[in-house]
Every structure is written in C-alpha cells, then in structure tokens.
C-alpha cells in the first residue's frame, strides 16, 4: 500500500504543477507525468491490460497535444482572472466534493469488492469462452454490447474532428454569408 500512496502523491503534485506553469509545453509534459503515474499505479494494482492501454493512449495524446498547440505557435497560457470564472469553478468544486462524499460513503472497503457478477465471470470465462485472458473474454464476449458502444463513440469522435477541421466546404475569411445581407 505504501508505494501506492507515493505514486498518488506524485500524481497530485504533477497535476498542481501543470496548472500553475505558464509555459504550455511544460504544462503538457506535467500532464503526461500524471498519466505515467496512473500507468504505474495500474501495474501496482495488478491490471496490466489497463496499464498498456493507459501508456499508449497517454503517448498518443501527448503527441497530438504538442502538435496541435505548440506546433501552431500557441506557447503561453493565459490566466483566467475574471470573478465569474472563479465563482463558477468554486460552485462546481463544491457540488463535486459533496457528490463524491456521498458516493464514496457507499463504496466497499478498498480491496474487498462485492463479487456478484465478477464471480460468475471468473468461474465461467475459461470453460465457456476458452480465452486465457479473462479481461478480453469479458469485454468482447460477455460485455460485447458495451464494446460496440465504445467503438461507436470512437467513430463519432473521428467524424467530429473531420467535420470541424475540414477544408472542403468551409467559407473563406472574407466571404460573407448570403443570409446576412
């Protein structure tokens, strides 16, 4: 348990540093440090599937963030200072903390899960699906419908990015909309 708390403290410190740095590149790298800490944490909690996925997705997100922000000449963060931003953030933080407190009171103790559905998977995955990796057996066989939903989410996000960044059908900067005049 001790090393978990060390990694957790590292992640919290890296997240705070990422908020307060002014250079955007350093900020993005601090966010990457949070992700790597999460990857180490998954490894310590004996979840190698999640660790691999977290590692590669973190690298991909870092590359895309760096190419999409620093590659475009945006290198300094501007600090929001208006009272409205601070007030709305405080209200959101209060609501979030209240909801999290109410939710965490109901959770079982760390390391003592309620094994109702999971018990069925552990008993039957090898005999019914014949897959040695139970995680894959769950996400692609018992819970295949959920994975189909995730694939749809990914498809929608790709379509959204393509629609926002398209070059065909976009108006020129000095072209005016016909309905305006």
């Amino acid at each position: 348990m001790f090393e978990l708390y060390v990694v957790m403290a590292f992640m919290i410190i890296a997240a705070i540093v990422a908020v307060f740095l002014r250079g955007l590149l350093s900020s993005v790298i601090s966010v990457g440090a949070v992700g790597m800490g999460l990857c180490v944490m998954f490894l310590l909690l004996k979840a190698p599937d999640l660790a691999i996925t977290q590692l590669v997705v973190e690298i991909l997100c870092l590359i895309i963030l760096i190419r999409a922000t620093i590659g475009r000449g945006v290198s300094r963060a501007t600090r929001p200072s208006s009272a409205w931003v601070i007030a709305s953030f405080s209200i959101f933080a209060l609501v979030f903390l209240f909801a999290a407190y109410a939710a965490f009171k109901e959770m079982p103790v760390f390391g003592a899960p309620i094994m109702r559905v999971a018990d069925f998977y552990i008993q039957n995955a090898l005999s019914q699906v014949k897959a040695a990796n139970i995680v894959t057996a769950i996400i692609l066989d018992f819970r295949g419908y959920d994975t189909l939903g995730e694939a749809t989410v990914l498809f929608t996000s790709v379509i959204g990015v393509l629609a926002i960044m398209r070059t065909i059908g976009r108006k020129k900067p000095n072209e005016r909309d016909e309905s305006d005049c």
Partner: peptide, 11 residues
C-alpha cells in the same frame, strides 16, 4: 495475442 496475454484490440 489479445486473448492470451494482456493487451487486446484497442491497445
């Protein structure tokens, strides 16, 4: 090797 070792389609 997604069904034998850790990993899978997404990773």
């Amino acid at each position: 090797h997604g069904h034998i070792t850790p990993g899978g389609g997404f990773a």
